[in-house]
């Protein structure tokens, strides 16, 4: 009898912690989304008003649009460049290989806040490195309607190494016999890459894509220091808008309703995305 119950007793501490730190705050936040709730003022029940306001808000739609562009573009570019770099670094480069391999990972270890500040300097229209490289003067990458693309560029600079590291590790785990067998069968380099290499590393690509997708959707720190969502909300993403609503405006109720919708939508998207990738690449 005791042995039968023992398993429940053993999971009880973990269950209490999980309920206390994950489930309770989730329901607390859900409840908060039905109130006009500001720090220091009494909460007022408003039903679904926060959600309705959200759908009416041009700021929310603008942030959603920016987030979609940001995520799709950044993750896609990071994947392509990361893959290219990994394939390149998987070859014999002699003495330089360990140095270049290590150097390529450095941006990943810099705090996004610092990356934002550095890129703000790089993009300075009058003294920045960007204008110097282009040979232009007075071009403000983050001061126009294309600002979001230049924020994406900073993100790509920082997170391409993440893709590169994961894909490189996967490339190195491909058994050489498979590649040799392909060569014996007369495959060309391109055929080998498409039909042997890529399927062999697809699981790593799925993992890297998923992690980057989740991370990019909540982009905040880089934007905070690089553009603060400007100009005119042109680089404001959902993560930034939730942060601004909660911690600048102190509109906890509105921010919570936004965060809940965001979590649900992202949950559905990620589940479907993973499902599609799994089916497409026959990982499971």
């Amino acid at each position: 009898m005791i042995e039968k119950r023992l398993k429940y007793y053993l999971i009880l501490p973990a269950l209490i912690i999980f309920l206390g730190l994950a489930i309770y705050p989730l329901f607390f936040a859900l409840r908060g989304s039905f109130f006009i709730w500001r720090y220091g003022m009494s909460a007022q029940f408003v039903g679904l008003k926060n959600y309705i306001d959200l759908f009416k808000s041009s700021f929310a739609w603008n942030a959603l649009q920016n987030t979609i562009v940001y995520v799709v573009l950044a993750v896609f570019l990071e994947l392509i460049i990361g893959l290219a770099l990994a394939v390149l670094m998987n070859r014999e480069l002699g003495f330089f290989r360990p140095i270049v391999r290590t150097a390529l990972t450095i941006p990943m270890f810099v705090s996004p806040i610092v990356v934002g500040i550095i890129w703000r300097m790089i993009y300075n229209p009058h003294y920045g490195l960007f204008n110097w490289i282009l040979g232009t003067r007075g071009f403000a990458p983050t001061g126009n309607e294309y600002a979001l693309f230049f924020v994406v560029l900073a993100d790509v600079w920082q997170w391409t190494p993440f893709m590169y590291v994961i894909i490189l590790a996967a490339l190195q785990s491909i058994p050489p016999e498979i590649l040799e067998a392909g060569e014996i069968d007369g495959t060309t380099g391109w055929q080998k890459f498409i039909h042997i290499t890529l399927p062999s590393i697809s699981y790593a690509i799925v993992i890297a894509l998923t992690l980057r997708f989740m991370d990019a959707t909540k982009a905040l720190d880089l934007i905070y220091t690089l553009t603060y969502g400007g100009p005119g909300g042109g680089t404001e993403t959902i993560g930034f808008l939730i942060f601004r609503t909660a911690f600048n405006d102190l509109n906890i109720g509105s921010a919570t309703s936004f965060a809940i919708i965001f979590t649900v939508v992202m949950g559905i998207l990620i589940t479907r995305f993973l499902g599609w990738l799994n089916r497409r690449f026959e990982i499971v």
Binding site: R120, Y123, N124, P125, H126, G138, F139, A140, T142, G143, N144, A147, T227, G230, P231
Partner: peptide, 8 residues
């Protein structure tokens, strides 16, 4: 204004 003041 000088170009780029939107980010200033």
């Amino acid at each position: 204004m000088p170009p780029g003041v939107e980010s200033y």
